[in-house]
């Protein structure tokens, strides 16, 4: 187990390092970051001033090492636009995004796992067909359109839910559904396929033959094994949601990291943009690492090979 953990940790570390290099070079995509930061109307003196004050005049590897060294100490630099410490801004915005993504993944799992199980118990039944239809339709709905439609019907027509900039729990309902429904088809299909396979296995027949109650067989024996791949998928999707919340957060004007990213990109605030991409990527790496550990804990076969 220790060997497996160390190996995974090494890979995660290498990925994080590579991501940091890519993220750092992102600001050089446009050519000269000082020109991009200064804006179109800037004079040569202003550009030179920005180049000096942000250290863009130093050799690129030196800049990278300096940036990485500071980032490791929690200092992500100062925002060009907000004139504040980037770490502080990100920390104040992060909770909203975490709450949103957490609610979204919870909504997705609560909806999709029972449906997947029900569909697997009776394949080709009415409920199986309903679940399949839901999956096919769900995969084709553009999330931003779905969000607007929900906003129109539930927010404007029926006035059930607040439509934007609300930090109460009601304000999170529509965004969570809009962000979470996209994950349900994948999780449901995986649960269904896993359950179908497990239900045919010998130990389920044994458990049934022992005379265990069907519910115990279903949940304690079957679901526990079928759920293992779902853990990985849910973790990956949770990581994607943190990055994908940019669309939903900007529609509902939720003051989170995604909305911040959108504002930042529109302002051309390069240091902040770098920092957000780095933070979201690191989140993803940590989450998938934890999911791997959880999987290894649930399924001994993984950690042996």
């Amino acid at each position: 187990m220790l060997k497996y953990i160390l190996k995974r940790l090494g890979v995660a570390f290498m990925v994080a390092l590579t991501v940091s290099v890519i993220t750092f070079s992102l600001i050089y995509v446009s050519g000269d970051p000082a020109v991009a930061l200064a804006g179109e109307a800037a004079s040569n003196d202003e550009i030179e001033h920005i180049r000096k004050s942000y250290g863009y005049d130093r050799p690129i590897p030196v800049q990278y090492m300096d940036w990485l060294g500071r980032a490791l100490q929690g200092d992500l630099g100062r925002s060009h636009y907000l004139k504040e410490d980037i770490s502080d801004v990100i920390l104040t915005r992060l909770p909203n995004t975490l709450i949103l993504a957490g609610c979204a993944i919870a909504f997705a799992l609560i909806l999709s796992i029972p449906l997947g199980v029900a569909a697997a118990i009776r394949p080709n039944s009415l409920i199986d067909r309903f679940a399949l239809t839901l999956a096919v339709v769900g995969q084709a709905l553009p999330s931003f359109w779905f969000a607007l439609i929900m906003m129109f019907f539930l927010g404007i027509q029926l006035r059930w839910l607040p439509i934007s900039r609300v930090e109460t729990w009601q304000g999170f309902i529509m965004p969570s559904i809009a962000l979470g429904y996209y994950v349900t088809p994948g999780v449901m299909r995986l649960t269904r396929a896993g359950m179908l396979e497990v239900l045919q296995s010998d130990y389920i027949r044994t458990a049934k033959a022992k005379g265990l109650r069907p519910m115990v067989v279903l949940f304690k024996h079957a679901l526990r094994n079928a759920i293992i791949p779902v853990v990985s998928l849910a973790a990956v999707q949770f990581g994607f949601m943190l990055g994908g919340s940019i669309v939903i957060e900007s529609i509902f004007a939720i003051n989170g990291l995604g909305f911040l990213a959108w504002e930042t990109i529109q302002r051309g605030d390069l240091p902040m943009m770098q920092a957000i991409v780095l933070v979201l990527s690191l989140f993803y790496i940590v989450i998938t690492f934890l999911a791997d550990m959880l999987n290894a804990f649930l399924d001994p076969r993984i950690r042996v090979t």
Binding site: V15, V19, I22, S30, A261, V277
Partner: peptide, 23 residues
Amino acid sequence: NFIITTRLSMPVVLVALAVVSLI
């Protein structure tokens, strides 16, 4: 595998938006 993992850990929408806004 390493390249795939690295690619997956970068948020698509955000990176696409950033690159498009820069170039």
